[in-house]
Simulated assay, not measured.
Amino acid sequence: MWETAKDRLRGRLADGLARSGLTLPWWVPLGTTAFTVSGLVVAVGQRVGPALPAAIAGFLLATSSTLLWVCTGRLAPSWLKALGMLAGIGLLLAYPVVPDFAPMPLAVLTGELGSIASARVAFAATGGAAAVLGAAALTVGLVGFPVYLLAVLVGLAAGFMLRWYVRALDAERGKQEAVREQARLGERQRIAREVHDVVAHSLSITLLHVTGARHGLRTDRDVDEAVAALTEAERIGRAAMADIRRTVGLLAQESSGTRPLPGAGDIADLVAETCAAGLVADYELEGDVAAVGATVGLGLYRIAQESLANVVKHARGEKALVRLEIGSADARLTVRNGHNGAARNEGGSGLAGMTARADQLAARLSAGPEGGEWVVDVTVPLARGAAS
């Protein structure tokens, strides 16, 4: 029951702060109110006797903003709270005692207004507090006027410091949210590129097998060849679905599978899979693929995959050459085919995806016609890949 009541109080305070446009934690108004009410209760207790009715009236005036919140759940405007507090404390100070706790809530008031109200209201309330204290010192002989005045000024300074801290905290939160949003956008773009590469390549190879099956049935009536082609298309389709699930699973907190992402060592299988679908392609490797890190390897694999997918779509009858050269400082991947017509599609999302991957790896990428061929050439520094 206690936890329920505490949660209800916390929610009500947070709601009141939100409606008032204040970004302070819920416990700040709770703490200041508790301290103020405690001081006023002690001040009323010090005036037991003939001054008690006036002290109770002063207490009610000083706590009018708190009573408003208890009854309606709304926080009183700063200026109204300041007027009620000054009037209530002034009435209490008309019957001074030694030592007197009545002036202490004024220090809390100036601190609170310094942190949440406009500077004009905060300075006006501080001036009003000084005037109330000065009038009490001159008329009824309030003892300790300099100490009380210093406490009010210290409260104002503490309020302005808290205001600066809250503003700095809000600015930092806004900056962190912008960084998180940028990271989320980058992650979505990265996953979109992964899905695009997987789907584009797999669909291209699957269509080659389906085309081969149709050709076999129409011209040769070779059912076995058609079944083999369709079986291979089914296998590639299932593998593509598994890749898509694994890639999309990166959005979740936990991994969706244990199969590793492809790397530089899988480019040979990629070329072989493309050749099995009917494309004529050669693969040349120079160097040790073990020297290529996982990040660089995945980027090279996806660039090779996208390049071969473009060859399948736009230069199916031409021979392709995939060459991977791995040196001590960098790795160079070259994909070339003898048909410049592929250039008309390289300006789409495929080239944009390859360019984005190259930028992530600090690689040099070129794609365009060269000597009657279409050439994709990318060079990746291995030191950066290993660090990644």
Rank of each mutant, 00 (worst) to 15 (best):
R180H: 12
E286Q: 11
Y148P: 14
G114V: 04
L185H: 14
D282I: 03
A119K: 06
Y301E: 00
G287F: 05
V248C: 11
G341W: 14
R12D: 03
E306H: 08
G278N: 06
G88S: 05
L142S: 03
M104W: 14
L308C: 10
G90S: 13
T4R: 14
S307C: 12
G216P: 01
G371P: 13
L67C: 02
W79E: 02
A43P: 11
R188F: 07
A277C: 10
I191F: 10
W2E: 13
I303E: 00
K313E: 05
G338T: 10
D222M: 02
A304V: 10
V179H: 10
L83N: 05
I236S: 07
L86F: 03
I326Q: 02
A240S: 12
A137H: 14
T219M: 06
V292T: 09
A240R: 03
A62R: 01
L298I: 00
R214D: 13
G84C: 04
Y301M: 01
R193V: 14
A291F: 06
G90D: 07
V280W: 07
L61F: 05
F101N: 12
G127Y: 00
E225F: 11
L22G: 00
L169Y: 11
L138T: 08
T36P: 02
G287P: 11
A363E: 05
G287R: 07
V108K: 00
S328L: 14
L91E: 15
A76L: 04
G216Y: 01
E325L: 13
G350F: 02
E172Y: 14
G127N: 07
F35I: 07
A136W: 00
A252L: 12
H215D: 15
A183Y: 09
T63C: 00
V248K: 05
G128F: 01
G58W: 01
R180I: 06
G39A: 08
P99D: 02
R316L: 13
A131M: 11
R221K: 06
H314K: 14
G84I: 01
Y283H: 15
G186V: 01
L203A: 11
H215W: 09
P103T: 04
A277H: 10
D377W: 09
R12N: 13
T126M: 12
S307G: 13
V280N: 11
V140K: 09
A107T: 09
G58H: 02
S328V: 14
S349E: 10
A18E: 13
